[in-house]
Amino acid sequence: MKAANKPKEKFRKRDLISWLVMLPSLILFAFFVWEPLLENIRLSFYSTKMYETVAFTGLKNYNLVLHDVDFMAAFKNTFSYTLWSLVIGFFVPMIIGVLITETVHLKGFFRMAVYFPNIMPSLATIWIWSYFFLPGATGVLNIIAGKMGMGPYEWLNDPRWTIPLIIITLTWKSAGSTALIYMANIASISPDLYEAATIDGAGIMQRIRHITIPSIFGIAKTMLILQIISVFQILYEPMIFKNGGPNNASISLMMLMYRYGYRDYNVGKAASLSVLVCIILVILSGIYMRATREKEN
């Protein structure tokens, strides 16, 4: 009864409590995500000794990064990584999702099996794949190829194939979970749509094109941007496989950052490279968000 008299005050109190509920989580975000990002920007303008800033050097670190002998290679590779991850990483989960949907036997088993690589620790899978791609007779893939009378192949040592093969291992790892999401979306399509299409004389391929694909288009856009962002995080695969080689054929921007920071102990240079990567990501994300918003309107 009193509450009705001063709704505004009550409202404020509830706001306060709400913020208090969210506060611990926001502190964690601030500590683990936001503050380090800002700190990174600050560090990128300083010369450093260990983690301590020594002197403000303006854009010197950025200049060093841009003129680094390996930077252009890493930058170019990023485009190659992105391209291949669009070709392989984006479509494979969709295809898996569609195919498994069309089975009736062992469906649960298929879902489980394709998801399985996803729960394997990435570090363990990188070690395993490095033995799969070993050139020479004892590499696992060459053993298999040999049984079929082919090979031996050079795999990652052929610079034309290094990046596509890395993307394949990444896709192997993550495709299952994305495929499950697509499957759930496909399952929620109303059967009436298919039946209506059938009555209109649409064949199976046409039904896929006009019903299945459009219905997963929305989720696919989200997956696409997540895919591109994940490309900028590629670090351990090229590092453990070939240390960025052969001759820089697979070096990634993040790997270069890791080298500056942890091999050369040059924190300022590492920070400025990661700021550059962040800028690229912010631009990409901005484009994406704008695009989706326009679509919604």
Binding site: V69, E154, N157, D158, P159, K242, G245, P246, N247, N248
Partner: peptide, 27 residues
């Protein structure tokens, strides 16, 4: 820099050694 050249000549039988060493030298 030398390791990069090694990687190139050991993976490509047609690698141009002189050009690669020149590149490494410049880098």
């Amino acid at each position: 820099e030398l390791t990069k050249v090694l990687q190139a000549v050991l993976t490509d039988s047609n690698a141009d050694v002189a050009a690669l060493m020149k590149q490494a030298n410049d880098n």
